[in-house]
Design a protein around this nucleic acid. Structure first.
Lengths: 245, 245
DNA sequence: CATGCTACTGTGGTCAGACCACAGGCACGC
DNA sequence: GCGTGCCTGTGGTCTGACCACAGTAGCATG
């Protein structure tokens, strides 16, 4: 059977909307399994290839996880891991010149400063402090001598992400993961532009400690400015044209 | 030919990475046409269905636009419209409970307050003011009596987006478009929870004017707090549990 | 009766081939 | 010179086939 004769929205979109509807109705929840591709195909009256195109989209967007074989863990399972989809989106948009790197950095500045400030404010009432342990573990790991710049940057990224996670805001966490992915390539290139990596990494480590310290001291204003300066300082060192806003 | 025997990453991913590489190398730029599906299939040694799965992903992510027929506008053309992909991602993640609505609202709060403040700061040096005309046109449109709540909310969303666009940050613009899409359904439901829509819409209109006024007065602090209060106030009215942070 | 192995079944992954609708370009006829 | 219709190439879709994989049920064996 060829293309639909009448109005016919694209077949794969039918599948996508069907899944979205099921999700909204609560008929499908994280952890549930989708019907098999062949079943979905028959149920919706579209070809299996169209079903697969829709599933591929859902997979890239971090909505489902697919695995072959049989048993309860096989098939397409609803998950909700926004980080992956966000990363793919940002990476490709940067590659396609849709997202200027400077805009990504500016957005990081806004988001991360805010996260640090909120974390500090949440620390105010003693006892209700957010959990910074994961972030501090990463700081310790970054102190280990002999790290290559690449390894260091990976830990650096993980540290910033750990702060976002500590804030408990999943949207911000996923967005930051995506932003970071989008400029990962540039960050690695930027290392080459740094004259004295040893000095720079030492400074970065110190700044990280300073941010955590300000948060734990419940000093929101300092946490914000230190975060801001930390990020803009790094990009000022690696890029010629860096946003200062 | 069936599934690959050896390690073989999934075929569609090969296509995706191929396009991404071409993009990064500059071999493919916005406006360019991708090779036809059949050509790509032959070139990369994968089936056409696999090529299509990859193209579908790129399409949903806002990287390409496809159209049938012949001529220079047919085929898959590189575009970079991040808004669409971001919207799809957010909408589906909310549907799948990956993104709590409260987190989206909190993120809006951060982003939009910051945008308003930056806009005000950019206004400081006379003459270099950002272009708020599109936003003001929307405000005028919102003054028209007889708007249904749905129409009003659409204009409201467009107004907030216009501010983001005025800031010139494409990442923030796209992200805000996505955030908005993610909670669109909730916003519409929320209207029902409002006792006096007439009074509420009048208040919203006034708050919008106030934000623009503060920006034009280059009063960043006021622009920030007014934006913050505007957003959190609206959600406080429509939701029971609204973030106040 | 307990245990280990094997064949089966259902799942996604992939490919090949076919047909359709659509839109531009070209050649022919007027 | 101009208009009309065919031709070709494009995405869009479907069908049918096969493969690799993993769990499971059933059989054979101790």
């Amino acid at each position: 059977m060829g293309a639909e004769t009448s109005d016919a929205p694209r077949a794969w979109r039918i599948v996508l909307e069907h899944v979205e509807t099921q999700l909204l109705e609560g008929a499908l929840r994280p952890g549930d399994r989708l019907p098999g591709e062949r079943a979905l195909s028959a149920e919706l009256g579209v070809g299996r290839s169209s079903v697969r195109e829709a599933l591929r989209v859902l997979e890239v967007l971090g909505l489902i996880r697919t695995s072959a074989g049989s048993g309860p863990t096989s098939g397409a399972i609803i998950i909700a891991t926004p980080g992956g989809g966000m990363s793919a989106l940002m990476r490709l948009q940067v590659a396609a010149s849709g997202f200027p790197v400077a805009d990504i950095v500016r957005t990081r500045l806004i988001l991360e400063s805010s996260v640090a400030g909120d974390l500090a404010e949440a620390t105010a009432p003693a006892g209700a402090a957010p959990d910074l342990a994961p972030a501090e573990l990463l700081l310790d790991a970054m102190d280990s001598p002999g790290l290559t710049p690449t390894e260091f940057l990976a830990l650096d990224a993980a540290f910033h992400l750990a702060l976002a996670e500590a804030s408990g805001n999943q949207v911000i966490t996923a967005t930051m993961a995506g932003l970071r992915s989008g400029i990962e390539g540039y960050a690695l290139e930027g290392v080459a532009a740094i004259a004295d990596w040893h000095a720079t990494s030492a400074r970065l480590r110190g700044e990280h400690r300073g941010i955590v310290e300000a948060i734990q001291r419940a000093d929101a204003a300092t946490a914000r400015t230190r975060t801001h300066d930390h990020i803009s300082g790094y990009y000022a060192e690696t890029f010629v044209d860096t946003p200062t806003a």
